[in-house]
């Protein structure tokens, strides 16, 4: 871990001002940042402690949605009565992630910005365009069990590891950001992440000094909410693939469908065409397979992760089947 200056921000102004320094990074829960700093993967020269900014409340918004402060911990969010009742997919996704200890520390804002678990990113001896732009991607041709089947580029095949963000994407969340100028704006989560392309080091649309202050959820969706995660052990492991689904069936036909996927792409993945293929249809295996065909049309394995294509298909069909079956 490189030496750094520690700055404690007592108001948002402090935070964004300090964040203007070259090499500054915000720290809140620290569960990912400190992990990476110990390995020399991230080397901020200033750490701006934002844990005293009082961004730790969950509030109902005027439109009956939810405003989740950026510092709300994963535990508090998963256990919040309104989330458990109205946004079950989010609660489920959070509870499927990490461990009780990590959820108590990890925050909403930090989770959105979680870095990939690509082992080549994690090892400074390996070339990695995400860690060291232009150095190459040692993961390609290496051990690729964890890697992406959708959205990767010739420069990076890493996946985004979050569970929470996948559920939020299916819920149509927005990210509230305070810029260095003190102005707040809301970015749809679907527009928040960037694909790696030539510059996998740039992962989001955030500008230097931007501070995530909250995540906004629209009013509770109607229909069935499911989060299903597949991993290498029963608990405490990152997703090989996950699906968040919010599906409403009306009069025997699929009236709305929001699907988001984790563990298979460089960002929480959503495919509007696959969703559109479901709308208005009578639920059936054929319909579900068609949606899977659309989702996976461009899927590309890297050797060790080829299985994710079949796994994602099976998972999607299974989740859609459960989401649309008649309740007894």
């Amino acid at each position: 871990m490189k030496p750094f200056d520690y700055v404690r921000a007592l108001g948002p102004g402090d935070a964004t001002a300090a964040a203007g320094r070259e090499g500054a990074a915000f720290i809140a829960g620290g569960t990912n940042l400190l992990d990476l700093m110990k390995l020399g993967v991230m080397t901020p020269s200033t750490l701006v402690d934002i844990t005293h900014l009082h961004l730790d409340r969950v509030e109902t918004t005027e439109d009956a949605g939810l405003r989740i402060g950026a510092l709300v911990t994963n535990s508090d969010l998963a256990n919040h009565a309104a989330v458990r009742r109205d946004y079950a997919v989010l609660s489920r996704a959070l509870l499927a992630g990490a461990s009780g200890q990590l959820r108590n520390k990890a925050t909403t804002g930090g989770n959105l910005l979680q870095r990939t678990r690509c082992p080549y990113f994690y090892d400074t001896a390996m070339a990695c365009n995400k860690r060291d732009p232009g150095s190459g991607c040692r993961a390609i041709g290496g051990v690729t069990r964890l890697h992406a089947i959708l959205g990767a580029s010739a420069h990076c095949i890493a996946t985004h590891p979050s569970d929470m963000a996948v559920a939020m994407l299916a819920l149509g969340a927005g990210v509230e950001v305070e810029g260095a100028d003190g102005k707040r704006r809301v970015v749809a989560l679907d527009d928040f992440y960037r694909l790696p392309g030539e510059w996998p080091d740039i992962e989001t649309v955030l500008e230097p000094g931007d501070l995530i202050t909250a995540v906004l959820l629209p009013p509770p969706p109607q229909g069935r909410q499911i989060y299903r995660k597949v991993r290498d052990r029963a608990s405490y492991a990152f997703a090989l693939a996950s699906v968040a689904a919010v599906i409403r069936v009306d009069s025997g036909r699929i009236a709305s469908a929001a699907l988001a996927f984790g563990g298979i792409a460089p960002r929480p993945w959503r495919d509007g065409d696959a969703e559109a293929a479901l709308i208005g249809e009578v639920p059936s295996r054929e319909v579900f397979e068609r949606a899977a065909d659309i989702l996976l049309a461009d899927a590309q394995g890297q050797g060790g992760n080829e299985f994710k294509i079949d796994l994602t298909r099976r998972l999607l069909v299974s989740v859609l089947t459960e989401a649309t079956e008649e309740r007894t």
Binding site: Y6, I27, G29, G30, T31, L34, D35, K38, L47, D49, T51, S75, S99, G100, Q101, L102, N104, K105
Partner: peptide, 27 residues
């Protein structure tokens, strides 16, 4: 493990369990 992957460092912070290895003392 020193990376929040084993739980051997678990302590209670204001009554809640956390991994002490992924916390800075000064915070």
């Amino acid at each position: 493990c020193d990376h929040g992957q084993c739980g051997a460092c678990t302590v209670l912070l204001n009554g809640r369990r956390i991994n002490a290895c992924l916390a800075l003392a000064c915070m």
